[in-house]
Design a protein around this nucleic acid. Structure first.
Length: 202
DNA sequence: CAATGATCATAC
DNA sequence: GTATGATCATTG
């Protein structure tokens, strides 16, 4: 049975590998424009369960896997996608998928080099949501949801740790929700939040 | 040079 | 088409 210590151990064992090395093991072609290729490679290696469900990657453990690019100072370079905004179902924070996914996150920093092949897998950071952070995230979430429920689209500058941004194949994509036609949106963690987590860890 | 809005690939 | 994995590229 998979446990969190086993999972962390697995991650520690592959820390230091380059993306090319891991890709070779799984016979994955890195010559693609697939922006999610590194995340999918780690899913293969760690054998995640959730696939494209709106659940944490390791369902039984309630652990969400996130790869995130970092620079030489271990500073996150990008925001982090959490989940889609579900217009038809806007639960309160306590019942939300966002909360469920963020309760336990296994962060795998990827030391980003000019070339994806030589980018390196770093030591994992396992982080459970602190009460302080949860309070702020819940406020962000409720504020953003209120705007969405009203029928508006929150601007990306709203939210201290979490924001709402477009999430689609392209800007022309629309999704239907009840009787409305809306621009698909996703919840994202700001890099200021992940920076804070990583700083506290070091 | 960080932030926002746009976009890429793939599974189902 | 909707979800997953995200990063890209233009702007301020």
């Amino acid at each position: 049975m998979l446990t969190i210590p086993k999972l962390l151990n697995h991650c520690e064992n592959i820390a230091g590998l380059t993306i090319a090395e891991l890709a070779k093991k799984h016979k994955v072609d890195l010559n693609t424009n697939n922006k999610g290729i590194i995340g999918q490679l780690l899913e293969l290696e760690l054998q995640t369960e959730a696939k494209n469900k709106a659940l944490p990657d390791f369902i039984d453990l309630g652990v969400e896997l996130k790869t995130i690019p970092v620079n030489d100072d271990f500073k996150p370079l990008e925001s982090t996608y959490v989940s889609m905004v579900s217009f038809n179902n806007m639960p309160r924070w306590s019942k939300s998928f966002v909360r469920l996914k963020l309760l336990k996150v296994l962060w795998i920093p990827i030391l980003k080099k000019k070339n994806i092949h030589t980018s390196e897998i770093c030591y994992p950071i396992f982080k459970e949501l602190s009460l302080e952070d949860e309070y702020i995230l819940s406020k962000d979430y409720e504020e953003l949801c209120e705007i969405i429920t009203f029928g508006d689209e929150p601007r990306a500058h709203l939210g201290k740790f979490m924001q709402v941004r477009p999430k689609a194949l392209n800007s022309k994509i629309r999704s239907t929700s009840n009787n409305e036609i809306r621009h698909p949106l996703g919840f994202y963690l700001r890099s200021s939040y992940t920076k804070k987590i990583f700083n506290n860890f070091i």
